[in-house]
Design a protein around this nucleic acid. Structure first.
Length: 599
RNA sequence: CGGGAUGUAGCGCAGCUUGGUAGCGCACUUCGUUCGGGACGAAGGGGUCGCAGGUUCGAAUCCUGUCAUCCCGACCA
């Protein structure tokens, strides 16, 4: 391909609405254009990148026994009603775009495909003899994200590879899950990405075991915690640890203390000379459930710990065996509109009386009381007295009366000791989630009644797994991990072109001819080569080559008359002076061996 | 949805306080000089000042409403 024919439009200034490096560079390099919030056009060079990633994914999925397919993006509501997810995905914070057709039938635009694939499998897979089966597809997904951001990182329309496996037994599911884990590691390695596999929450998808693959990068949206020996790695949403020990509270008799203007844990501790771990922190939240219940929640935590909302939502789902639409802190305005008196915020205790909810218009009039084990383990503590500007000291749980439900609700933090080896501590890093694998179990096959005949002729529900990769996100994550001040440094395997031949001065006949010659020879050797044949000055072409990030650059310039050209490696600017034959030889070899690695 | 900010040419911005009919840099077109790290000169083209009302002789500028985009939180590949 010739740059003069490539519709290459690069920008010198950084677009104002791009925040992170990868987003800025993709815009500046002429890879993407924003069409709407979270909606992007993939320009020709970007499409080449995406196709290269796609090809790698297809190869590895095929090698792992996957069957490529293509499922509809328009999905009937009825299918989602059967799985029980229509409500959760369309109402409240739901992320499914949905519409009505001319007959008034409701349809959703596929954010994921468990429903479609499971009903198909139930239809087509009748015998255990047909199992296991893994189906996958690569297509555009639609999600009405609450907050799209960072270009392709979180789009409302994005390209995803999603795979689903069907099994006769849990053991068989586990073996495919392990094979997918392996395939994912190969895929990311072949794409030139440094990733960490972490234990993950399975979220709205549901199911048992689940692992996320994170591209490590400071701009990542997720916080991941890893042990220094590398044996434990988890998303903070899921991570568990041994808490730091609490500072024991000097034995005092229980009593009331005045704590004017000491509303936060910090204010209280600094005014009273306490450690945060000696205080019980109380959070009041409102959970709205799929069945319409509005339930006030009272959470007690040790003062030095933070609430993990994912763990809270999971706990609530188990407690009520129904889906949670959202959980939000309760505000004084909400209390007023329920016709309730304000709570003594800043002085709340775990024993806040249910009386203060009586007469609520739409809420359940009793708190659901939960507490983290670190809070329950305190033998003596300080907590709010449920009246403004008063706290109680020397308290314990038996003095407080009815004990809340004990459940892990706190965030593991960097510095906590690891459960697998208390000598290790957790370190934190940021990551971009590019892949996620789940053991779904039989959640969907039961909900959609998808079954097969086992070896004794009995109908059984499938064991299922599902496995996703964000293709377009992966492309941007690669940029986030591989760039410098001058621009992108694409890993070879996913670069839009492998080599760019820059003719320094197009008016120089010798340079022009030699450039053309090298270009044709590389093309004939099967290399993805770009020829910069623009009549721009050399500096402009060098800057553009750096910006768009082609891994290798051949400069045909001053020494063209002696058949000497420069070979420059984009990532480290390493330069060699070679003749035509050498440059073609060494590039062909280098590229072929690099691309073969990992296959 | 809550909190914060911004909308003026393809991109980056000034002008708004104090109303007088739109400007700068880059990019684009033409000509000349230059030609290995985003050249120089000359001449051009391109704007419903987000949109709708209002105030005024007159609005990019003041007022009201509205829409869009971005950032912080919940969502997730």
């Amino acid at each position: 391909m010739r740059v003069s024919r490539l519709m290459l439009v690069t920008l010198r200034d950084v677009p104002a609405d791009a925040e992170i490096a990868s987003h800025q560079l993709l815009l500046r390099g002429g890879y993407i254009r924003r069409i709407g919030s979270g909606i992007y056009a993939y320009l020709p060079m970007m499409w080449r990148v995406l196709r290269k990633i796609t090809a790698i994914v297809q190869k590895e999925m095929d090698a792992a026994g996957g069957l490529e397919t293509l499922l509809p993006q328009m999905q009937p509501a009825e299918l989602w009603q059967r799985s029980g997810r229509w409500q959760g995905y369309t109402a409240g914070e739901g992320i499914m775009f949905h519409l009505e057709d001319r007959q008034g039938r409701e349809l959703g635009l596929g954010p994921t495909h468990e429903e479609v694939i499971t009903s198909l499998a139930g239809d087509l897979l009748r015998s255990y003899r047909q199992l296991p089966v893994t189906l996958y597809q690569i297509q555009t997904k639609f999600r009405d994200e609450i907050r799209p951001r960072f270009g392709l990182m979180r789009g409302r329309e994005f390209i995803m590879k999603d795979a689903y496996s069907f099994h006769a037994s849990e053991a068989d599911l586990c073996s495919t899950y392990a094979a997918m884990d392996e395939a994912y590691r190969k895929i990311f390695e072949r794409c030139g990405l440094e990733t960490v596999a972490v234990d993950a929450d399975s979220g709205a998808i549901g199911g048992a075991a689940s692992q996320e693959f994170m591209v490590t990068a400071d701009a990542g949206e997720d916080l991941i915690l890893t042990s220094s020996d590398g044996l434990y790695a988890a998303n903070q949403e899921k991570a568990v640890s041994q808490p730091q020990p609490a500072q024991p509270l000097a034995k005092t008799k229980e009593g009331l203390i005045d704590t004017p203007k000491q509303k936060s844990i910090e204010e209280l501790c600094s005014a009273q000379g306490l450690e945060a771990s000696q205080v019980i922190k109380v959070l009041i939240m409102l959970a709205s459930f799929e069945d319409g219940q509005l339930q006030p929640i009272l959470v007690s935590l040790r003062g030095d710990q933070d609430l993990n909302e994912v763990k809270l939502v999971n706990a609530l789902t188990v407690e009520r065996s129904t889906g949670v639409l959202n959980v939000t802190p309760i505000s004084p305005e909400q209390l007023r509109s329920q016709g309730l008196k304000n709570f003594p915020f800043g002085s709340l205790g775990p024993d806040l009386d249910d009386q203060c909810l009586s007469g609520a218009k739409t809420w359940n009039p009793q708190f659901l009381r939960l507490a983290d084990p670190t809070a329950l383990a305190l033998e003596s503590f300080v907590c709010g007295a449920n009246q403004n500007d008063k706290h109680r000291i020397g308290m314990n749980w038996s003095l407080l009366g009815n004990t809340p439900i004990s459940i892990d609700l706190r965030n593991a933090q960097a510095g906590d000791r690891c459960l697998h080896d208390p000598k290790q501590t957790l370190e934190e890093r940021r990551g971009i989630e590019v892949g996620h694998i789940f053991q779904l179990g039989r959640k969907y096959s039961k909900a959609l009644d998808a079954s097969f005949a086992n070896d004794s002729g009995q109908q059984e529900h499938f064991w299922m797994g599902c496995y996703g990769i964000g293709i377009s996100r992966l492309a941007q994550a690669a940029v986030e991990q591989h760039h410098d001040d001058a621009g992108i440094c694409w890993p070879l395997a996913i670069a839009p072109f492998e080599v760019v031949v820059v003719i320094a001065n197009l008016q120089d006949e010798t340079q022009q001819q030699l450039g053309e010659q090298i270009y044709s020879k590389l093309k004939a050797a099967g290399i993805d080569v770009l020829l910069d044949d623009r009549t721009e000055r050399a500096g402009v072409k060098f800057k553009d080559a750096d910006l768009i990030g082609i891994p290798w650059r051949i400069v045909v310039g001053r020494d063209a008359s002696n058949d000497q050209v420069e070979l420059v490696r984009r990532a480290n600017k390493e330069t060699q002076l070679l003749n035509t034959e050498q440059v073609i030889d060494s590039l062909t070899k280098e590229i072929n061996t690099q691309l073969k690695r990992g296959i």
